[in-house]
Design a protein around this nucleic acid. Structure first.
Lengths: 342, 342
DNA sequence: TTGAAAGCGCTAACAA
DNA sequence: TTGTTAGCGCTTTCAA
């Protein structure tokens, strides 16, 4: 159980431990012959450098954190997270970094201070904060910690951190415009309330802006991103007078719930009402009717976010805190399926 | 940007750095007054111990790894992973551990050796290996590394590692028996081929055992867990003669694909054919018709797996490699919905 | 009850 | 080109 160290390798190769270190770090000025001998010793002893020692000595960790903000039981099963996370990890790995994951609950001060503690303990070098609802107050707080951070899915540019998001607003506008051209008059939107500066807010704004432009009537019903909340929302909406002719849901999961509720009540989709989602996850194609929705290029966004974070980390290490504000907004595209067909 | 260390705290409190360490580690024999003073200094300086230094000194890491085996593009969107992972993390956090995630691709030797390298570099203390298809050869390999490991979702007991799984076999048997009692004669199974000792194998065995017992005809069609493969599989199956009167899918995602294909072809479910899934994810309730499936208690399993892993880690540290083989098999329950209603 | 010394495994700086 | 020295921040002896 005793580990092989640099010294063991040095002993085996008949050189000093420093020479071994030099070989490992590709220092110049090592005779090929020595180098060869060291490499053989490393192989023979199955040596692997201790990452803690390296991190300690270099005052540098090669781990990034994927922080899911606003973690609640309702969103645990959300396929969104998995996609994002696995894209993060792939990119991080490609760049020679490890990744840890943190789920921050909405208990803001406590969740954030846990993250900060972890950072100050040097457990990770920087974080991609995933999730809506990062309020301006939180951002100010974060800003004071100077922890390399990238905001994922934050709708507004930030002076403090790079932001990677998608054009949720235009996506929604596009969808509403399309529905307007098809003669729809009364739209209902199912969306989580609040979320200032977050992606829900962007979706809501796009909805209202386009509806106003086209002179459409609108109502809003709260949801919490879960399918169950979509179900409830649709039921409530359908009791109203006048009834909407299209129900737009802020994500696919809620839309799936709405479709289910419609079927239970005996409302035909798309005959009696159109229903749309947002995100375009795997099962959007597999609802009945299949779901018209907006596609978000999550994997691409995730790759960009990690790359930006690594730049942030390098910049912070080099001690150059000034930088242009970065705001990456990826296009969102309409995917037309049955639930809102003509 | 310069970090606060033990020495800084000691200086501030007017004691030696060792005393600070003693306070942090709750050593006895510290005068309450001194203790108080040190704690105030820690507070005042916002001190956080460096985890790398601690790990190095104690030769001990407090990170576990969540290793998803058989990672392929098809399974990235799988909600299964997220549920499992977030349950792992919650339990690990509760026990004072961090968690990293690794996605091992099916390129067995390379993927595994990356994991091993990471372990030998002391990046994590042990791994929960999630996924089917861990072949006996892989297990032997793993066994030689003596890396604390727990197998998640492995169907057979192992002499080498604790296993946490669900009773996939009985679940399938129960479902087949139910269908037999309802007069079904010809069953088709959509399932990934191979997977010796994995959960797919258990599902397949349960299926065949029960079908045999009840004298039912069976056919099998390959799938790769993805919805798209379920779609293809159903289409193929429906071209056969005679047609089955029930199509059992080895997971919900494939079942969703099968439902879609049936609808496209114009086959009524459950009127013309019954379709069932396995796992009971959120959207199983939201397909149309809603999906009859088998519920797997993933969160509970995940908690148990982490606890077992921590025990393994402790045991290994204490140098007592012998231990009773552990095999935890959680119950799987039938959830009846519309797609296989009477 | 507290402090001083040693060293975990590594790398940066310098000396040979 | 290689070896020696020092120290990253912490905890574990052991002595005061």
């Amino acid at each position: 159980m005793t580990r092989v160290t640099l010294r063991d390798v040095a002993l085996h190769a008949g050189v000093s431990h420093q020479t071994v270190s030099n070989v490992l770090n590709d220092h110049p000025s090592i005779r090929p012959q020595t180098r060869e001998r060291v490499l053989r010793a490393i192989e023979a002893l199955d040596y692997h450098p201790n990452s803690a020692a390296k991190a300690l000595r270099e005052s540098r960790v090669t781990t990034i954190c994927c922080g899911f903000y606003d973690h609640s039981p309702e969103t645990i099963a959300d396929p969104y997270r998995n996609l994002v996370q696995s894209a993060f990890l792939a990119e991080a790995t490609a760049q020679g970094y490890d990744m840890t994951t943190a789920f921050l609950n909405s208990d803001v001060p406590r969740g954030f201070s846990t993250l900060r503690t972890s950072f100050l303990q040097q457990r990770f070098a920087g974080v991609v904060l995933v999730g809506t609802s990062v309020t301006p107050e939180c951002l100010d707080l974060l800003g004071q910690w100077n922890m390399p951070t990238v905001l994922f899915d934050h709708a507004e540019p930030s002076a403090l951190f790079p932001v990677v998001t998608a054009d949720y607003r235009s996506g929604m506008e596009h969808l509403v415009t399309r529905l307007a051209f098809r003669g729809h008059q009364r739209l209902a939107l199912v969306i989580p309330p609040g979320d200032q500066g977050g992606s829900a807010a962007a979706r809501r704004e796009g909805f209202h802006a386009a509806a106003l432009r086209h002179g459409l009537q609108t109502t809003t019903e709260p949801g919490d991103w879960s399918s169950a909340s979509g179900e409830t929302a649709f039921t409530r909406i359908w009791r109203r007078t006048p009834r909407p002719d299209a129900v737009l849901c802020a994500n696919d999961r809620m839309a799936a719930g709405a479709l289910y509720a419609a079927r239970m009540i005996g409302v035909g989709v798309p005959a009696d009402v159109r229903i749309t989602g947002f995100d375009d996850f795997e099962f959007a194609r597999y609802t009945a009717p299949s779901l018209t929705t907006l596609h978000v290029p999550l994997a691409e966004m995730a790759r960009a976010a990690v790359r930006l974070l690594l730049t942030e980390i390098e910049t912070a290490r080099a001690g150059q805190p000034t930088r242009e504000p970065v705001f990456l907004k990826m296009p969102v595209t309409l995917v037309e399926r049955e639930s809102a067909a003509c």
